[in-house]
């Protein structure tokens, strides 16, 4: 389930970090596992338990990291309310009800996975660069970065598909994809423009449309708010 929704989820949730920290991010959500606690347990896990019980109004005592009688009563109360076994033992079930993962360790099935296995940014860069080549060949370098940035802004926008390939292959979106120009190889300047956009450069400050005013375009497009003009292209939100 995680895998299937992974791509959408990553983009939806982490959009901001994506732009701000660096390039593309894949985030795996794993809850930290908590050990089983009983009367007398001590340590940070007990503090987490006490803090959560206090947040939810089950516990009035101090967050001292010691599982004493007050904590015990609070746990019993919590377990009763949540129809768990009322035993005062904070095991996997109780941790889950508290919103934490209860088992001791994560299953490590992916032992063979090393370093950056199965992850590559070069596909994205290559695709972006080819679109830049097809749409903005002969434009100033800044204009090329701008075209790549518009593409990435579309990925981040609620109104457009949520992946680079989705945006590129959206029907009627890019003339160069419809007429096959997109399949021509990119040159090194296009590649650097693509890489710059992926690394955060956006001369358009968030534009999602660009067009050549000298060519016939849909009238609606002119209703968008124009940000700037670079070379032959106008960029707009």
């Amino acid at each position: 389930m995680l895998k299937n929704r992974g791509i959408l989820k990553v983009i939806a949730i982490n959009l901001t970090l994506m732009i701000l920290i660096l390039s593309v991010f894949y985030i795996t959500r794993i809850n930290a596992a908590q050990p089983t606690l009983t009367w007398g347990s001590r340590g940070s896990s007990v503090r987490i338990l006490q803090r959560r019980l206090r947040q939810w109004g089950y516990y009035d005592g101090s967050v001292d990291g010691i599982y004493g009688s007050e904590s015990y009563r609070a746990v019993l109360n919590f377990q009763r309310k949540n129809r768990l076994r009322v035993d005062g033992i904070v095991g996997p079930q109780t941790w889950r009800a508290l919103g934490y993962r209860g088992s001791t360790r994560l299953a490590r099935t992916a032992r063979t996975v090393s370093g950056g296995a199965g992850i590559s940014r070069s596909n994205d860069i290559e695709m972006l660069a080819r679109l830049v080549h097809a749409e903005a060949r002969g434009e100033p370098f800044e204009g090329q970065v701008a075209v790549a940035a518009v593409l990435l802004n579309r990925v981040d926008s609620a109104s457009f598909p949520n992946s680079i390939s989705g945006v590129i292959y959206q029907p009627l979106a890019f003339e160069s994809v419809a007429n096959g120009q997109f399949y021509l190889p990119a040159d090194s300047e296009n590649v650097r423009a693509a890489r710059s956009a992926l690394n955060g450069w956006d001369p358009t400050h968030g534009a999602v449309f660009f067009w050549n005013p000298a060519k016939p375009v849909n009238r609606w497009i002119w209703s968008r708010s124009i940000i700037r003009r670079i070379g032959r292209h106008v960029f707009a939100r």
């Binding site: 929704r5 959408l8 939806a12 926008s157 609620a158 109104s159 457009f160 598909p161 949520n162 989705g166 959206q170 029907p171 009627l172 979106a173 449309f209 849909n218 609606w220 497009i221």
Partner: peptide, 25 residues
């Protein structure tokens, strides 16, 4: 999300789908 993705696969101009795609997202 799936509805948005399917909508974006249709051969419709940006002005037709822009708002709907945003609404779905």
């Amino acid at each position: 999300n799936t509805a948005q993705a399917e909508l974006n696969k249709l051969p419709l101009a940006a002005q037709t789908v822009y708002q709907t795609a945003k609404f779905l997202s």
